[in-house]
Design a protein around this nucleic acid. Sequence first.
RNA 1: GGCGCUGUAGCAAAGUGGUAAUGCAGUGGACUGCAACUCCGCCAUCGUCGGUUCGAUUCCGACCAGCGCCUCCA
Length: 463
Amino acid sequence: MNLKLYNSIAREKQDFQPIDPQNVTMYVCGPTVYNYVHIGNARPAVVFDTLYRVLRAIYPGVTYARNITDIDDKIINKSNELSVDINEITESFSDAYFEDMVALNTLEPDVIPYATQHIPEMIQMVETLVEKGHAYPADSNVEADKGHVLFSVPSMSKYGELSKRNLEEQEAGARVEVAGYKQYAGDFVLWKPSSEKEPGWASPWGRGRPGWHLECSAMIKKHLGDTIDIHGGGHDLIFPHHENEIAQSCCANDGKPLANFWMHNGFINIDGEKMSKSLGNFRLVRDLLQQYPGEVLRYVILSSHYRSEQNFSKELLDSAWRTLDSLYGFIRGVAPAESHLNSSGDGFKALLDDLNTPVAISELYRLAKAVNQANGAEQVALMQELKGLSDILGLLQQDPEQWFTLARGNDQLSVEQIEQQIQARQQAKQDKDFAKADQIRQQLLDAGVVLEDSREGTKWRRA
RNA sequence: GGCGCUGUAGCAAAGUGGUAAUGCAGUGGACUGCAACUCCGCCAUCGUCGGUUCGAUUCCGACCAGCGCCUCCA
């Protein structure tokens, strides 16, 4: 049973070997809490949650950390825009984030570090970098430039190892003007000054706040150590964010690598286009949850391989919902069973192969179908295996009966009304008044309720 | 310009040097008073053109078409 993971820094699938098999360490970049998260933010959370579950099934200990970035210019802007205190912004949006993550069946990480609670560690790291000649305070006569501390990219010979970029060949400043106080165009901010109106902390370079990249480096060092097993995040974070994290941590920690495995999930597009402010096509998890159960969103995310791009659309969501209906349909009426992971089953084996969730899901389907056709002890065993696999995937976590009564967004009838109608139809059937029975069934169907007759009686479900 | 990704059935999505998992949709049949559910079955030659090979969707090359990153970004 060996886990293979695609390592972005090596650009190939590799056998995963933890530093300490007793305690695997994983860090994933979490959200900047200035707004509700969109479905793109949900992908890494769901993907790495699934990996977390796989790791926990293999190793006795796993420490998973996912941060909250609660100090950032975007947050400050939002605060100004709404004239709301910055703490209120970060608290309400981090709370909302946690709610959304629960809806997506993600487990709570072991550590949830907040950037603002690690300012001393960050300052410490900057000081170390300055001492070692990897960082410098901006030297400028311009008042606004003072108080910046920058990382000196040329001081690190291996810079660019993750993204395989040669800064000379990049279009430096293609999108952002190069600040005049930088010694080198590629240098990035470790610490920046804060005005009286902006949140700030005292530092050797004056009152200021940390740069984005610094947060993760400092929090990883504090909670997980100098070198961790797995560092995850979205594909777009490879450069500059992760590259800069490597630079900071590696240079501050005597050249030790920051992470042995770098993993990056692909993007989610909407109707073929990237989500962007200009297109106004963000899909907030919160909004989608108004229309779809969180498990449908999770299913969609896991239905394609985490490294490929995924195109979100209404059709995809609706189709995923129908599939889950079908899955729940197979186990409806089957007694719940203890979770029992078959670690040599095809589903788990697929997950060990760089988290091949589409194949694991197909196995889920095969098992559910088998459960439906088996009975007795065989059925119990299959149900246990199904439960074992679905628990790793974080799917089929609800009671089937409840699943089928879940609100579908267009519900016109209450459970009582539905059951009343079913009674009436039952009577009509007994009276051989099929016209009336069919009429009732049609009315229910029009109201989004499908009936399923069986020997044991009539079941219904919303669809 | 630099780095990189993708192109498999109506849709979604795995995969392999030896003639293509799975789901949704569709469709034929069984079951049903009729349906729904369920069950049995059907439904693709893998962007194009070359090359390597006994044999390629899978390796190599070219081309075509999309797309991402290059200091906000999951």
